[in-house]
Design a protein around this nucleic acid. Structure first.
Lengths: 107, 107
DNA sequence: TTATTATATTGCAATATTACGATAAAACAA
DNA sequence: TTGTTTTATCGTAATATTGCAATATAATAA
């Protein structure tokens, strides 16, 4: 085996797992952090910020884009990436539900 | 190559990535969900809840435990697993910071 | 002691991820 | 047109993850 048996789980569980997987790499956390630290959303210099080669960063950006955590819009020769607030909302909400369920228990 | 260059990133980025990686599999999301749905924290029947073999579930539990997302205490022959609220707090807080930083921007 | 029950570990095969050099593609400038 | 800049894709090697059968361990019961 080796492949994850995702068909066996609910769509919601798979969706959340996909979001977390997109954030499960320090480079991708760093990219999100960088996007939050710059005033404008102009990017491309992410390559200069991180100790990774350009193809590697392009790959990480693609994964963040696929998971809808960031959005990218073409701006001439460059591409402007920015955080997608809707997805942040979705994840935050997930933890809100957990927190609520946790209130009435504990071992 | 192939190994993630984690030494190149900050401790905080690595820590968050590790937490998200622990949640990046539908089975582990389902386990967290199940732990939240049962009134008591008595477990072991997670094996009956999920379509995975016992060794596989044991492995997933171990990863959640290593990431401090769940805690396990021996209770006779069985083990009582439950959510670690501190770690949930930590993740929620991370998104709180993101949300705050997001407020004053957008492209 | 010998079962029984609950969980963990080992070993291995299948698959996925990470990283990067080389190269391609797309937009614009000269 | 040719050159430059920016980003994406291909190909491939190294490593990590997933899943499970078999087996081991630990606690209790008979």
């Amino acid at each position: 085996m080796g492949a994850s048996k995702s068909e066996s789980f609910s769509e919601e569980h798979n969706e959340m797992a996909t979001l977390f997987k997109a954030l499960s790499h320090p480079a991708r956390i760093a990219i999100v952090d960088y996007l939050l630290s710059v005033d404008s959303c102009i990017c491309g210099d992410i390559v200069n910020e991180l100790p990774l080669a350009q193809p590697t960063i392009s790959q990480h950006l693609k994964e963040l884009k696929n998971a809808n955590i960031i959005k990218g819009t073409i701006e001439g020769t460059a591409i402007c990436y920015c955080i997608n607030p809707d997805t942040i909302d979705k994840i935050e909400n997930h933890f809100g539900v957990i927190r609520h369920k946790l209130k009435n228990k504990c071992c």
